[in-house]
Design a protein around this nucleic acid. Structure first.
Lengths: 179, 179
DNA sequence: TAACTATACGGAGACATCCTCCGGTTCTAC
DNA sequence: GTAGAACCGGAGGATGTCTCCGTATAGTTA
């Protein structure tokens, strides 16, 4: 990769991250290119579409969540550890309006790397909680992550109610029926 | 309302419903107008924006769900009745790709009529299930509807897995923790 | 039934966004 | 220094939303 190409790639990634945080992931790609000081053509050459750019931005952010999972894997209460981690995932997704929606869309495999990484980290926590008998058998990490993303989506569509995420999350964790 | 205006209004509503089912709620409004045999200007005069049209289409569909709730209010198992009804809501939303997303968006009050109607119907079922001691206190119908919409959203983003809705719904109902 | 007027119609067009294409420029290897 | 591969960037086609206003028509009155 030529030096100028590398420089532009890095700038685009950084600007995209900022723009996603400030304006959500459906920000105009032209804006990102302009702020990065490059033309729109350059953006599209490096990242064939919006999801390719999103994937590149977010894959770099997953290290923190993976590390968090590794720290939590030895916790005293495996079920709590799982929920703490899921909440971290939610908090991360919530930083970027639209990210949850993209992660949920299974059909297009463009965010596949991100999703595989999350399943790997969370799967270990879930397995341990199930071995400890604290979480129901038959539950799969993919479904837990879907539910978490869905709840983030709810929360971001109700920005005036800051507690939405916590309420719905505890609903899902404790169930609706009297135990 | 002039006769031609009424005729066009009805045609638009019917075409919009079909288009929403076939192509999802983000179908091009021009297509709806064309199929209804009117110009795009006519569509926008009757329905100032896409949500206004959606609201008009779906408010007519809610009678069935309201009736269902009235039937279920005397069921033997109040908690089951609530979940049966929530599943019906989910099944209805699932007919129209994008409807759940619109219903979730609290901030814009454009689907307000639809949401108020759903809360009214579901609220009675929830109250009865709680009085019977079968559903946890503190749970609100608005949150249950949000969770249901969120799960529909998940399901419609995973069209290859038909069981997604049922699995996530039972997750939420039974909880994740061992009871 | 014919003229009149308020109302509705409909499409051209302004604007926004996505994405592609290709002529011109810049870097790098020799 | 130069040749050419790699890269840049913006013009422009495609699609979609929504507005504006000249034209057509339904309904009313004489």
């Amino acid at each position: 990769m030529r030096a100028d190409a590398q420089r532009n790639y890095d700038r685009l990634l950084e600007e995209a991250k900022q723009a996603f945080i400030v304006h959500g992931t459906d920000v105009a790609l032209e804006d990102i290119a302009r702020h990065a000081g490059v033309g729109i053509g350059t953006l599209y050459r490096h990242f064939p579409d919006r999801y390719s750019l999103m994937n590149a931005v977010f894959i770099r952010e997953l290290d923190a969540l993976t590390e968090r999972a590794e720290t939590l894997i030895d916790a005293d209460e495996p079920a709590d550890a799982l929920f703490v981690w899921l909440r971290s995932v939610g908090a991360h997704s919530a930083m970027y309006r639209g990210l949850s929606s993209a992660i949920l869309a299974q059909s297009d495999g463009r965010m596949l790397q991100c999703k595989a990484r999350l399943r790997e980290s969370g799967g270990a926590l879930l397995a341990r909680a199930q071995e400890a008998g604290a979480v129901r058998e038959g539950i799969e990490i993919a479904d837990l992550l879907k539910l978490t993303s869905a709840i983030v989506l709810c929360a971001e569509k109700n920005p005036e109610d800051r507690k939405t995420f916590d309420r719905l999350m505890s609903l899902a964790v404790n169930g609706i029926l009297v135990g």
